[in-house]
């Protein structure tokens, strides 16, 4: 862990380059967790920006390099939590239909659609042979899930959180989290089977 520790040490000295290197290691998961928890790119971007800023300002609290990911994710979680609070206070459009949590549904396909039409700069290369069309289907199905289900999956997939940690965040016990996770996966499966025959 030699180089990693060095990075952390330099980042603590406010070395922007070093900090950016640490950030590079986690930024994709960071953004994706925010995006799938909040449901729109605009807010996800804001929240991630805030998080990075806060992390940078508070970097002196970081004890070891190994903890960086857990630590910056914790900040992100807190910020997402507040963002949700803000949502709850907002007037909500009647079309939302998902537990009152608003997301501008028209935004999402745009982002993926843009990728499909080749506007993307290639950063999201398709891995494992999943076609972009199929991925778009999955994403649209994903946003049909309830907010709790999306949060559980997003935290698990991108934050690497265990069910008890997710439980703490959502104030339910670990078993409930696991049950909801299973159900959500089942729901996705059903939705995607309807759409395209099989969810691989």
């Amino acid at each position: 862990m030699g180089e990693y520790d060095q990075l952390a040490a330099r980042a603590r000295e406010k070395d922007v380059n070093a900090f950016a290197m640490l950030y590079k290691l986690v930024y994709e998961d960071l953004y994706h967790m925010a995006f799938y928890m909040l449901g729109n790119a605009h807010d996800a971007e804001d929240v991630v920006s805030d998080t990075v800023l806060a992390a940078y300002e508070g970097i002196h609290k970081l004890k070891s390099a190994a903890a960086f990911k857990g630590w910056i994710f914790k900040i992100l979680l807190n910020k997402c939590r507040r963002q949700r609070k803000a949502y709850a206070n907002r007037p909500v459009s009647i079309e939302s239909g998902t537990e009152g949590q608003e997301y501008p549904a028209d935004r999402l396909p745009e982002t993926m659609a843009a990728a499909l039409s080749g506007e993307a700069d290639g950063r999201c290369a398709a891995k494992s042979g999943i076609s972009r069309e199929a991925a778009l289907d999955v994403q649209q199905a994903f946003f049909q899930l309830s907010e709790t289900e999306r949060t559980i999956l997003a935290m698990s997939l991108f934050g690497g959180y265990k069910s008890h940690e997710i439980g703490k965040h959502l104030h339910m016990n670990a078993n409930t989290v696991r049950t909801k996770c299973s159900r959500a996966l089942g729901k996705l499966q059903d939705m995607l089977i309807e759409r395209q025959g099989d969810f691989r």
Binding site: H32, Y36, A135, V138, Q139
Partner: peptide
């Protein structure tokens, strides 16, 4: 299924504004 789900979902493009380069500029 979780792994496959992650593969699909992570294809969502990351906005320029939070790329490491942009963040570096901001900082």
């Amino acid at each position: 299924r979780m792994e496959q789900l992650k593969e699909s979902l992570r294809q969502e493009e990351i906005p320029q504004g939070v790329s490491p380069l942009a963040i570096k500029e901001k900082l």
